[in-house]
Design a protein around this nucleic acid. Structure first.
Length: 877
RNA sequence: GCGAACUUGGCGGAAUGGUAGACGCAGGAGACUUAAAAUCUCCAGCCCGUACGGGCGUGCGGGUUCGAGUCCCGCAGUUCGCACCA
């Protein structure tokens, strides 16, 4: 693709951009105090902080450009704006770099941060850089250790033996949330089950609160709230203990009863089997007794992690030969091991009611188990009602159900629970899908868990005075496993309780912990305590949080949990971290392949008369789909290259221009070139006015129609851009700025050729030019400053100006075009003054030649007139 | 399978129930230029018509309304999320 020539550029971003960045910096206008000032309302704008991979990508540019528009706009509206930036700096890529290239994770990370910070600064974002934090520095993670200890003291942390998801490639434990389709979210490797001692954060303590809180988050996207609601997964039902019928000799007495969770205790009389998970202790017992059972359990474990198993989802089971007693009837039912029962939901066991559950019905059919209908749907007759291939899960009237007969489904539910409780074999309970959060990771590059294991005292908290527990620098990555564990001396210490030799915890925190409270740390980033109450309580919650939809569940849920836990431990006094959430779309680009099928970067491709070819050759290139920019498809465009070629403002303007921010946008060469053209055009237009019209031109009493029209265009644009920004319709704001620019350029031409300038046009031109500077400043701040200074060097910084106010008198047009319809079809237009006498407008509409022609011979039965908008004649005959 | 969102020119998209297609990209014609670039002007939903104008148009089928891209019902397609949740 050809390089643009710089000779014709009147606006030289290369020199202008650094100049204004320095000016903002020395004016300190993006700096705010830890405690929000009392004279203005506060506004906290936050974009999700980046992982320092080494290079900023276009998605970041879009994310931060969007946040910067909001931050600069709110600042102009008189808010004290907190807009910080930092680095989500722990994580595996740093360790991988250490393994592959021998560079220390710390050095690799800090170098990456430096490179990415430089790019962010070149983009001119209005960030309060004094507040920069990196989660990999002891100043941050030491405070995180303090929070961990606060949580531990408050009973929000537990150590448990538990089955974990083990990623054999990354050699670490993953949370349930991080296992996708049985594979690690990062490595993609099939996950194995392993039993380990793990630290858990008790997020389930707040399950109800996290659910209830969603109702108040009215500035969150509906779908994110829905996703979280489902993830938390509250369900009400009953826990029932089924005693074994004739328990076999030698069975652990704990296994004499099987506990089951159900949401449908009303359907107990329709039971025909009991099913347990392959991982259930009773299944383990059965496997120990019987080789066939063992084989079935092993098979389930194998298939459990493969995608095929999930997709084919054939219901399979194994009859253990054991039987359980029914709580309400003198009957017993078989116990099956079933592949569709999940050990980690409910109790890992269920009772099967084939008539009321499709899955149970499929299972019953496969193994010839009885099907007894117990709920009669409304409008059906019990005499001829049967269940064949479709289970009925809806409401109705109970049948075949002993003491529940005749009750409604919901009444039967409570009656059944009452009876279970009376008999002492069950109780009503609320069950949650949400699990506690296992945070232990067998990794070096993470926050050390501040605990010491003593043979005598057990796990002991590291005393506050010994924080931070710092990562050792001298580690090796020459073998698999955790370098902290391999370190010769680091883990050896003494017990803070008894003083005897003891071992440090060598696990580090899941990196999702790091990002669960950074928004709070930003309010007092250098404080000796994790938070400072006046700062955190003053700035939080974040008023506008902006980031990708991919964090809809994990990060946002963890952050909401942390906020509650920090509240409980008096680290702050809010419950919800993010009052407003905006999820922006991704940046996509065409992808290209050469004739050999290799992916090509956009800069390796050019468009010629003969089609798309490899740059400098005639080799044809296949243009593939437009997809999310990714390294693997090589369809990326580097922000640094774009900034160098077109400038920061052009890059910012383009990512904000065409597509609504919540949707994906396509990056195109033509698009960014168009943005660059517009920047130049705007600058030329405003410069011309600055050169011709003196700075303090006054507005005369009487102004010409042309001046009046321009003033009205200016004020309507102020109103439209303001409204667009308030509703995140940045692409619409961009369009309105284009329009005013065109109107201004046209008016400017008049003054250039007319000797006698129409009255007031000078003033109107200046007003429009100044307005354009201020309206475009949130998107193209450097250009705006340069133009603003040309208009009046003494006026100060554009970034310090108040947002322009639209004058209400100038919002209405002087003359309106009224559409005239006949039977709802447009047949002409007439001019009208605002709020003109309806009779006069109607008469003119009826007389409009084309309308009159079509009305001939017709009888008007109704004249609809919506003032200032439309006329519609309804005719008959 | 369940749930949500979306569906408008060649493309991205705009439109408090009131002139559909603003604005941009790509395209066409012209001006300037020795020429090109840059810039500027004009055209542009589809069909018929020299034109005035007319017909058809916001995925498809219905409905409400003087008037529907917009509201309601049904259908189709696309995308995303969740997925054996007892």
């Amino acid at each position: 693709m050809s390089q643009s020539t710089s000779t014709s550029l009147s606006y030289d971003f290369h020199t202008v951009e650094p100049k204004w960045q320095a000016a903002w910096d020395s004016a300190g206008i993006f700096t705010v105090p830890d405690v929000p000032p009392a004279d203005r309302p506060k506004y906290y704008v936050l974009e999700m902080f980046p992982y320092p991979s080494g290079q900023l990508h276009m998605g970041h540019v879009r994310n931060y450009a969007l946040g910067d528009v909001i931050a600069r706009y709110k600042r102009a509206r008189g808010y004290a704006v907190l807009h910080p930036m930092g680095w989500d700096a722990f994580g595996l890529p740093a360790e991988n770099a250490a393994r592959e290239r021998g560079v220390h994770p710390r050095e690799w990370t800090l170098n990456n941060i430096a490179a990415m910070r430089a790019t962010l600064q070149r983009l001119g974002f209005s960030l309060n850089w004094d507040r920069e934090i990196a989660t990999c520095l002891p100043d941050y993670y030491g405070k995180q250790q303090k929070l961990f200890l606060d949580f531990l003291a408050a009973g929000l942390v537990e150590r448990r033996e538990s089955w974990v998801n083990w990623d054999p490639v990354d050699q670490t434990v993953l949370a349930n949330e991080q296992v996708v389709d049985g594979k690690g979210w990062r490595s993609g490797a099939p996950i194995e089950k392993k039993q380990l001692s793990q630290w858990f954060l008790k997020i389930t303590d707040f399950a109800q609160s996290l659910l209830d809180g969603l109702g108040k988050l009215d500035r969150w996207p509906e779908r994110v709230r829905t996703m979280q609601e489902r993830w938390i997964g509250r369900s009400e039902g009953a826990r029932i203990r089924f005693s074994l019928h004739q328990p076999p000799a030698g069975l652990d007495t704990n296994l004499n009863a099987v506990e089951v969770f159900t949401t449908r205790p009303d359907t107990l009389f329709g039971m025909s089997f009991l099913a347990i998970a392959p991982d259930h202790p009773l299944a383990a017992w059965a496997a120990a007794q019987n080789a066939e059972a063992a084989e079935f359990v092993a098979e389930c474990r194998r298939l459990g992690t493969s995608v095929e198993a999930v997709e084919t989802a054939e219901k399979r089971g194994f009859d253990t030969g054991l039987r359980v007693n029914h709580p309400f009837m003198d009957k017993s039912f078989p116990v099956w091991i079933a592949n569709f029962v999940l050990m980690d939901y409910g109790t890992g066991a269920l009772f099967g009611c084939p008539a009321g559950d499709q899955r149970d019905l499929d299972f019953a059919h496969k193994y010839n188990l009885p099907v007894l209908p117990v709920v009669l749907p409304p409008g059906k007759d019990q005499a001829d009602y049967t269940i064949t291939t479709q289970a009925y899960a809806g409401d109705g009237v109970m049948i075949n159900s002993g003491f529940l007969d005749g009750l409604s489904t919901s009444d039967a539910r409570s009656a059944a629970i009452t009876r279970l409780e009376e008999q002492g074999v069950g109780e009503g309970v609320t069950n949650w899908r949400l699990r506690d959060w296992g945070i232990s990771r067998q990794r070096y590059w993470g926050c050390p868990i501040p605990v010491i294991h003593c043979e005598t005292c057990g796990p002991v908290a590291v005393p506050d005075a010994q924080l931070p527990v710092e990562l050792p620098e001298d580690v090796t990555f020459d073998r698999p496993g955790n370098p902290l564990d391999h370190h010769p001396t680091w883990k050896h210490t003494t017990c803070p309780c008894c003083g005897k030799p003891a071992l440090r915890e060598t696990d580090t925190c899941d990196t999702f912990v790091d990002s669960s409270w950074y928004f709070a740390r930003f309010t007092a980033p250098h404080a000796p305590t994790p938070t400072v109450r006046a700062a955190a309580d003053g700035w939080l919650p974040v008023d506008q949080y902006i980031g990708g939809i991919e964090h809809a569940i994990l990060h946002l849920l963890y952050a909401r949990f942390f906020t509650r836990a920090m509240h409980r431990t008096d680290n702050l006094d809010v419950d919800e971290p993010f009052a407003g959430l905006f999820t922006q779309g991704m940046v996509s680009h065409e992808s290209y392949k050469d004739s050999a099928g290799n992916w090509l970067y956009p800069e390796e491709v050019e468009r010629t008369a003969n089609g798309v070819v490899k740059t400098g050759t005639t080799e044809p290139v296949t243009v593939g789909r437009v997809e999310k920019m990714s390294k693997s498809k090589r369809n990326t465009v580097a922000p640094v290259a774009i900034i160098e070629r077109f400038g920061a403002d052009t890059a910012r303007w383009f990512v904000l221009s065409d597509s609504p921010p919540e949707r994906d946008m396509e990056w195109t060469e033509a698009g960014v070139a168009g943005a660059a053209r517009f920047a130049q055009r705007l600058f030329r237009t405003v410069s011309a006015i600055a050169a011709r019209v003196p700075a303090n031109t006054a507005c005369p009493e009487e102004i010409s129609a042309q001046a009046d029209a321009l003033r009205r265009a200016t004020h309507r644009t102020i109103a439209a851009v303001t409204e667009a920004l308030e509703s995140f319709a940045i692409n619409v704001a961009v369009a309105r700025i284009h329009e005013l620019t065109s109107a201004l350029a046209e008016a400017e031409k008049t003054i250039a050729k007319d000797k006698d300038t129409p009255a007031g046009l000078d003033f109107a031109l200046r007003e429009a030019a100044r307005t354009l500077c201020l309206l475009s400043a949130p998107m193209m701040p450097h250009l705006a400053e340069e133009m603003f200074a040309e208009l009046d060097p003494k006026a100060g910084l554009a970034a310090s100006q108040d947002w322009p106010q639209a004058e209400p008198d100038l919002l209405a047009a002087t003359s309106l075009t009224i559409a005239v319809q006949i039977m709802g079809k447009l047949r002409g237009t007439v001019q009208a003054e605002p709020d003109e006498d309806p009779a006069a407008v109607l008469a003119r509409a009826e007389a409009e030649p084309n309308v009159a022609r079509l009305l001939e011979g017709k009888r008007i039965v109704k004249r609809v007139h919506v003032p200032n908008r439309i006329v519609n004649f309804v005719t008959a005959g």
